[in-house]
Nucleic acid binder design. Structure first.
Lengths: 350, 350
DNA sequence: TCACAGCACTGAACCGTTTAAGTGTCAATA
DNA sequence: TATTGACACTTAAACGGTTCAGTGCTGTGA
C-alpha cells in the first residue's frame, strides 16, 4: 500500500481547518473546537459567531484528524464471506445492508464492506481492521457452529454485534430471530393441510441457524407424530437446490411437501418439479425461507417465511453504535419470522 | 455525530507505534518510518532489524495517522442509489462489488458503501465524503442522461471513475461496454431466427445506457428492414416487468420476441406468458439482459446477454486507484457483452 | 592532507483535531 | 475587603505517522 508516487497532486481549494475559523473569529483553536462540538467552555454569543463562520467557510471536520485524536473512525465494518456465485442472486445481503445504512447514514457513520471467499481471509481482515483502527466495530453475519470468529473477536476486544444466536455467541452480543418458532409454524401448517411426508432442503450444514431449524423441524414433526423429516443440505445456489430437489422427488415414498432454506433453491426446486411433470401445489407443496420478490416472480407464487431483513440490519447497527459508545449490551431478540401462504402450498392430493 | 459520551472505554493492549519500534531498535522515529516504507535512508542491516522488531511487536500502521499525514485514506467509495425493493433482487451490484473488492483487497484498500434512495442524498454524500476526506475517490454507477453528478464531481475535483459511457461523462474518465454492439447482435439474431415483431421492455428512461440501447435497437431494426421496435419502460422490478409484459402481449399484432433490460423483468415476463398461456419459445422468444444464475432457474432457461460484471468492477477499481496515485486516465472500453442463446429463443411459429 | 560527496541517521515540524491544565476577569459571598 | 468560584477563554500536549533539513562519519580523489 501507499506505493511509489509521493504525494499525488491534490489540487482544488485548500481545506479549511479550525485554525482558519479561529483566526477569522479571533479566538483560539480550542474555543472553536468547544463551540463546534456543542461543549461547554464558550459563551453562547461566541458559539454562534463561530458556527456562522464555520458555515461561511464551508468547513468540514477532517475525519482523519478526528480519528487520530479521539480514537473513533466513525466507520463500522461488515465482512461477507460467501462465494461470489451465491452472493449475487441472494437478496439477503443487499436488504441487510440497506437496513444497516438506514441507521448509519442518519448518524453520519460509514460502512466499510469487504467480500471474501474464505474464512481465513475474513479473520485476517478483522485483525487488520482492528489493528489499523479502520473501523470502530463490526457486524458479524452467517454465524457458524463453533464459529472461530467468535473467540477471535472476543480476544481482539473489538466491538461487535452478531446477527444470529441466541447460542454460540460466547460473550458477544447478538441479535436473533426465532427460527425455531418459525419452522414450528411451517411444519404445523403443512401438517394441518394434511401433509405427512415432509422433506427439507436445508442450507449449509455448518451454519448455526441451519442447526437451529433442523432441531425445530425435528421436534415439531415428532410432537405431531409425523415421520422423520427427510433433510438434505445444499449451498443456497440454484444448481444445488435443483439437484437436491431431483433427489428428493426420486425417493419412495415421494414427499408431498418440501421446505427450502432460501428462496433461490425454492425457485430452482419449482423449476425441477415442472421439468419432472410434478404439479405444484397439487402434487407437491413448496415453502421458501426468506420472502424476496423472487418468490412472487414464479408461478405459482411461493409460500414463504418472511422476515424484515432490513429492520434486522438496522437494529444490529443501532446496537453496535451503542456498544461503540460504551453502552454495554446483551443479546436481544428481533421479530419472529412469519409464514406468508401463497399458491405453492395446498393439501396433498391423496 | 460524535454525540455525548466522551472517550468510550478503549480497553485491550495499548497500540504499538513506530515510537515503540524506534525505542526498541535504538533509532529515531524517522528511521523507522523509512525502513517500514521501503524508502532509502537506512542501511539494509538496520532495515531488517526494524522490520523484525515491528513484526515481533505486532505493529500495524494507524490508518488515521497515516491519512492525516499523507492525505490518503486508503478507502474508495461507492454509492448505490436505487430504491431498496429493486436493490435486493438484482445481482448486478453484488457482482460489481465483489469485483471491486477483488482489486481493492489485494492492495489493502477499503470500500466505503452507501445506499441511498434519492439523488440529492447521493450528491450530498459525495460532498461530505470529499470535504471530510473520508475516501480517496469514488466509483460512479447508473450514469444518467444529463447526470448532475458529473458536474458535481468535476467541480469537487474528486477522483472518480464512471461506470458507463462513452458519452455524457464530461471530463470524467469512464469505463464502458459496448451496449450498442450487444443490442445489435441480439436484434440480428432474432431477425435471423425469423422474428419481425420485436418488442422491448427497457429499463429506466433516465439512465444513459437505456438511451444507448434504444438507439442501437432502433438503428439495427431499421437497417434490417424490420418494423419499429415497440419499447416500453420499466423500473427493473418484477412487478413492472410483469405489467409491461401483459401490456405487450395484449397488443395486436402481438410481438413474437421481447428483449428485457434485466434478468428480473425477463423472469417476470416468462411467468406472465405462462399465466396467459403463451408458450415460450414457440409463441414468444425472450432475451434477458445480464445473465445471472436467475436466468437458469426458470424453465425454459433464458437466452441472455452476458457480461462479466465482476471484471467490470475490478477494472473500474484499478483505474480509480491509478487516478488516485496521480496517473491521468482517459475513458476505456471493457469487453463487449455477448449473447448466450438458451431455450427461451426459437424461430416464431408462423 | 584536505575538500567534498555520499550515506545513515537524527530532530523537529507538520497534518487537523481534542482536551487537560492553566490564566485572567468578574460577581457573589464571608 | 479579601476569598472563593464560576465562567470564558488560551496554551500546549497528544494522537501516530511522514518528511524535510540538518549532522556526523567514512571513504574517495586530487
Amino acid at each position: 500500500m501507499h506505493s511509489g508516487s509521493s504525494n499525488a497532486a491534490r489540487v482544488g481549494a485548500p481545506r479549511k481547518t479550525i485554525g482558519d475559523i479561529a483566526k477569522a473569529a479571533g479566538v483560539s483553536k480550542g474555543a472553536v473546537s468547544y463551540a463546534l462540538n456543542g461543549k461547554p467552555g464558550v459563551s453562547d454569543a461566541t458559539r454562534q459567531r463561530i458556527l456562522a463562520i464555520a458555515r461561511d467557510l464551508g468547513w468540514h471536520p477532517s475525519s482523519a484528524a478526528r480519528a487520530l485524536s479521539d480514537g473513533r473512525t466513525g466507520v463500522l465494518g461488515l465482512i461477507v464471506d460467501r462465494p461470489a456465485r451465491t452472493l449475487g442472486i441472494e437478496s439477503f445481503f443487499m436488504q441487510l445492508i440497506s437496513g444497516i445504512e438506514a441507521t448509519l447514514s442518519a448518524r453520519d457513520v460509514g460502512l466499510l464492506l469487504q467480500v471474501t471467499d474464505d474464512q481465513e481471509k475474513e479473520m485476517a481482515a478483522y485483525r487488520q481492521w482492528w489493528a489499523q483502527r479502520r473501523v470502530d466495530g463490526v457486524i458479524l453475519v452467517d454465524l457458524r457452529r463453533d464459529d472461530p470468529r467468535v473467540p477471535l473477536l472476543e480476544q481482539l476486544g473489538m466491538p461487535c454485534v452478531v446477527i444470529g444466536g441466541p447460542e454460540g455467541l460466547g460473550a458477544l452480543p447478538g441479535i436473533w430471530s426465532d427460527d425455531t418458532g418459525a419452522v414450528t409454524e411451517v411444519v404445523e401448517y403443512l401438517a394441518a393441510l394434511g401433509h405427512r411426508r415432509i422433506a427439507r432442503v436445508a442450507g449449509l450444514r455448518g451454519l448455526y441457524h441451519t442447526a437451529l431449524r433442523d432441531r425445530g423441524v425435528a421436534a415439531t414433526a415428532q410432537r405431531l407424530g409425523l415421520p422423520e423429516v427427510d433433510t438434505v443440505y445444499a449451498d443456497y445456489t440454484g444448481e444445488e437446490g435443483a439437484r437436491m430437489t431431483r433427489a428428493l422427488l426420486s425417493r419412495r415414498p415421494v414427499p408431498t411437501a418440501v421446505i427450502y432454506d432460501n428462496d433461490v433453491m425454492a425457485v430452482a426446486g419449482v423449476a425441477v418439479a415442472h421439468e419432472m411433470g410434478v404439479d405444484i401445489p397439487r402434487e407437491l407443496s413448496v415453502v421458501a425461507w426468506d420472502d424476496s420478490p423472487l418468490c412472487q416472480l414464479v408461478h405459482p407464487q411461493l409460500s414463504a417465511v418472511s422476515r424484515d431483513i432490513a429492520a434486522y440490519g438496522s437494529h444490529a447497527a443501532e446496537r453496535l453504535l451503542e456498544i461503540v459508545d460504551g453502552t454495554p449490551s446483551g443479546t436481544a431478540q428481533d421479530a419472529t419470522p412469519r409464514l406468508v401462504p401463497r399458491g405453492s402450498t395446498a393439501p396433498p392430493r391423496d
